[in-house]
Amino acid sequence: MSDPNEQLPETEVLQDRTDRPVVRVGGTVHRPAQPWTPAIHALLDHLAAVDFPYSPRVFDVLPATGTAPATEVVSYIPGESGPAGWANVVDEKGLRAAARLLRDYHQAVAEWSPATPPVWSGGRTGTGGPGELVCHNDFGPWNIVWNDVTPVGLLDWEYAGPGPVMQDVAYALEYVAPFRDDEMCVRWLRYPGRPDRRRRLEIFATEYGLTDTTGLADEVIAIQRAGLDFVRQLAEEGHERQVEMVASGYLTEIANRIRWSEDHRHLFD
């Protein structure tokens, strides 16, 4: 019989989405397991084994019960994340730290070659060919856990999968350079004024370890185009989240971002 005086773990809804609710329970995070969860857990277990300190640790997968789906349980990383991340990466110290975090992740996963090829979201398998590794594929300020301008964690690994190294770099640069117009930078992304985009791109590239920034703007535009195609594909396949995004006009928003990037490539080269 349970003790009526026993204190239950504190709970907090971290993400209230019907297709992917995320709840903190004490020092753990619970979310519905997906077909690719074994691949993500294999990746996180590898990162734990090589002492990469920024990734959640895998605790368990709870079986489905009644109408409740199977649930993955990983460690909770305290700190600021989500919208708070934008202000932290505006600071050049935060920008440099984010670049080093991505570099450190790539170094930690570069030699990973599990005996059983992981199966990722979208049906991709393995860990990549020459010049590729398992990218995070959603490396933005909102998915970094921050202590002031110092990263202490990296979240949301659900889109991880094999790809060229520059795929993660270009994805990050879209958001941290950023490839957005001045009004959005000031109004929504916490910049005090017009950002020096070329300088920010160069800082991130240098801290990551690149010796040449030639072609990076084109890499970012290619990632933006791929993102548009990916959202459209998932919507056509009936994924709830992407269906809602397309219905709300998200594809037009992405197309406008691509057009802005193409018209303002000179700000980055």
Rank of each mutant, 00 (worst) to 15 (best):
A177M: 13
G128T: 13
L154Y: 06
Y171S: 07
D138W: 02
V176Q: 06
F139P: 04
G128D: 08
D168L: 04
M166F: 08
V165M: 10
H136I: 08
L173T: 06
Q167V: 08
E158K: 03
L154H: 06
Q167A: 13
A170Q: 01
G163Q: 06
D148V: 14
D168K: 04
E132Q: 15
G131E: 10
W146D: 10
V169I: 15
C135I: 07
C135T: 12
V145F: 11
L155G: 04
A177S: 15
Y175V: 09
N143L: 07
L133Y: 14
N137W: 09
Q167Y: 09
A172E: 01
N147V: 08
V134G: 11
D168F: 09
P141D: 12
N147E: 15
T150A: 11
V152N: 00
E132R: 00
T125M: 01
P130C: 09
A177V: 10
A170E: 03
V169K: 00
Y171V: 07
V165Q: 08
V134T: 11
L154Q: 01
M166V: 13
C135D: 11
E132G: 07
G163A: 13
E132H: 06
Q167K: 10
Q167E: 15
P151C: 09
N143G: 07
G153Q: 02
G140M: 11
G126T: 04
Q167L: 09
H136L: 12
P162C: 11
F139S: 11
L133Q: 14
G128H: 06
P162D: 14
T127C: 12
T125N: 03
T150R: 14
V134A: 14
I144Q: 01
P162W: 03
D168N: 09
I144C: 02
V152E: 00
V176M: 06
L155M: 10
N137I: 04
V145C: 05
M166L: 15
W142M: 12
D156H: 05
A177W: 06
E158A: 13
A170S: 14
D156R: 01
D168I: 14
D156T: 05
G163E: 09
V149P: 00
C135R: 00
L155D: 02
Y175I: 10
T150F: 01
V145A: 06
L133H: 15
N147L: 12
E174D: 12
C135A: 15
L154W: 07
G131Y: 08
N143W: 08
F139A: 12
V145Q: 03
G128V: 13
D168W: 06
P130I: 10
P164Q: 13
Y171I: 06
Y159F: 15
